Amino acid sequence: MTDATSAPPPSAVRVSDEVTAALAEGRPVLALESTILSHGLPAPRSIEVGLAAEETVRAAGAVPATIGVVGGTAVVGLSPGEIEHLCTAGDVVKVSVRDLPVATALGLDGGTTVAATAWLAHRAGIRVMSTGGLGGVHRGAGETFDESADLPTLARTPITLVSAGVKSILDIRATLERLETLNVPVVGYGTTRYPGFYVADSGFRLDYRVDSPEQAAALAAARDAHGLEAAVLVANPVATHRQLDPALHERTLADALAAADAAGVTGHDITPFLLDFFQRATGGASLEVNLEVYRGNVELGARIAVAVAARG
């Protein structure tokens, strides 16, 4: 690792030739985050998932733009080799918006979070993004003020984001309240029940739904027509026959929260702790649901990107 004064920083952002050409020609592009690959899955499965996601996007008629940081440069449209590098290098950091200048100045490799990916995608001119689960308000945030940077970033980043709700380990009620306060529209895809990542129904109701990629594209266009700067969130539930058993989910969540409390785990360490607990406690079933969620969101995001591009 170098310090910030030892050498001039690299170019801050590089957009791949393929993504640049697609945007210039008005063709559909879908942004994909990279922390699910760099921090969410072990190699070589992470590499397989990343490359398969890009193939899903291409099969739907869109161009994939997986985003990450390589040697301090934020790359919009990682090459297969760069995806493999972020999945296998031993010192890859997790990069949110606040970390972008640090990563650039110090020449770091990084997987970009939802916030950083959305920010970089919007800067490049990409209008649609897919992820697995969104960050949100953590349990006990009334005392800790622990809230994901995803929320305020999405409040000022006009992108359409497809996710399976927020991770169920978070405070879903508080997250929905914050999104309302931040004027971020949230709609269910084919449902008015807000999904809970591992489960199709978190127990909370949404006011609105869309039932096609074209309706989602129309919603984004209406947001732009009103001059609003917030993202549009499309909450896409996992199929009920693919979800984690709801009773198992509730038991595991209670045990995971108790284990985190006993271990004194707090702050940015709690999400990976809880997700790892889920994976071990469910014998890997939660990981398979996680991947099913991601695949579904990538497929839907690509279809929405096609619909957005068709509107011009």
Rank of each mutant, 00 (worst) to 15 (best):
V186W: 03
A74E: 04
R173L: 05
G110Q: 10
R127Y: 00
I83P: 11
Y189E: 02
G132D: 05
G188M: 07
T153H: 07
T175M: 10
G136K: 06
S168N: 15
W119P: 01
V93D: 09
T153E: 15
T117N: 12
V102T: 15
E180N: 12
G68S: 06
V93P: 03
A89S: 14
A115L: 08
V137K: 09
K94Y: 06
V187Y: 13
A174T: 00
G136D: 04
R139D: 07
D150H: 12
K167F: 00
G132K: 09
T192Y: 00
L78P: 12
V114M: 09
R156A: 14
V184T: 03
L108Y: 10
G135A: 04
I172G: 01
D99S: 13
E177H: 12
V184K: 09
V75W: 07
R139M: 10
A164W: 01
V184I: 15
A155R: 09
D150Y: 08
S130G: 14
G125E: 08
L179P: 01
S96V: 01
V93E: 13
L86D: 05
V137A: 08
G190R: 09
A121N: 11
E147F: 07
V93R: 15
G77N: 12
E143I: 01
P80W: 06
A89R: 14
T66A: 15
D91I: 00
P185E: 05
T131F: 01
R173A: 15
V97G: 12
G111C: 11
L151Q: 08
V187A: 14
V184R: 09
V102R: 15
L86H: 04
P80E: 11
G72V: 04
M129T: 01
R173F: 02
Y189F: 15
T66M: 15
D146F: 02
G111R: 11
P152C: 11
L151C: 06
N183H: 13
L134H: 05
S96P: 10
V137Q: 07
G190L: 07
A149S: 15
G81Q: 13
T66D: 10
P101S: 10
H85R: 15
L106Y: 11
V166E: 02
R127Q: 14
R178L: 13
K167H: 01
D109L: 10
S130V: 04
V95Q: 07
G110F: 04
A116E: 05
A149L: 13
F145L: 15
A174P: 01
A149R: 12
V70Y: 05
K94D: 06
V97I: 12
P80V: 07
W119Q: 14
A89K: 10
T66S: 15
T191M: 09
T175R: 11
D146M: 05
R178I: 00
V70L: 14
L100A: 10
A124T: 13
V186D: 06
L134F: 06
L154E: 01
A149D: 13
V114H: 06
R139L: 14
A141T: 06
D99Y: 04
R127H: 12
L134V: 00
G72F: 02
R139P: 07
R139I: 08
D99T: 12
L179A: 06
T153R: 08
A115C: 11
A141Q: 05
T192E: 10
